[in-house]
């Protein structure tokens, strides 16, 4: 018996609106497009990267931007042996909490490394930029071990 004909149609989920990222997130993303990384000072003076709009403890509106380094230190990491389709690498890689030079709070991003044994807590890493930067968090393609 021939297989039954299955009716199918392509479907693309889309949203017909633009969302403004505002003065804090927008500033960070725009700086990324220019290949710079900025954080913001929290109520206690700590530099938070990526910047937050409000201090999570005092709820104070934050506005003091600070440019931070493009190198930093791994605070913690997860080694992904079998990357998922949505992940940024086809090869094993790490997700890491990275405290950039000049920052007091770590940011989460991916780290490219050849093997799990190459990466440790405290290892130094450097941001690698995407070929084209557009103002997304993924403008930082990944971090690489220094």
């Amino acid at each position: 018996m021939p297989p039954p004909e299955v009716l199918s149609q392509a479907f693309e989920l889309g949203f017909t609106y633009t969302r403004s990222t505002g003065p804090v997130v927008g500033r960070f993303l725009t700086e990324l497009r220019d290949r710079k990384i900025v954080g913001i000072q929290g109520s206690d003076g700590r530099v938070i990267v990526p910047p937050m709009e409000y201090d999570p403890v005092t709820a104070e509106e934050l506005s003091e931007f600070v440019e931070v380094g493009q190198q930093g230190e791994i605070v913690s990491f997860a080694w992904v042996k079998e990357p998922r389709d949505a992940h940024p690498f086809d090869q094993p890689f790490a997700w890491a909490m990275i405290k950039l030079d000049g920052a007091d709070v770590a940011m989460i991003h991916c780290v490219s490394a050849a093997a799990e044994s190459d990466i440790t807590t405290g290892a130094r890493v450097q941001a690698v930029w995407a070929e084209q930067t557009v103002g997304f968090i993924t403008d930082i393609r990944c971090f690489e071990l220094v």
């Binding site: 990222t21 997130v25 993303l29 990526p50 998922r84 949505a86 992940h87 940024p88 997700w95 940011m107 989460i108 991003h109 991916c110 997304f136 968090i137 993924t138």
Partner: peptide, 10 residues
């Protein structure tokens, strides 16, 4: 939605 979701951190 700006810093983590676009990275698909599981």
């Amino acid at each position: 939605p700006y810093y983590l979701a676009p990275q698909w951190v599981d």
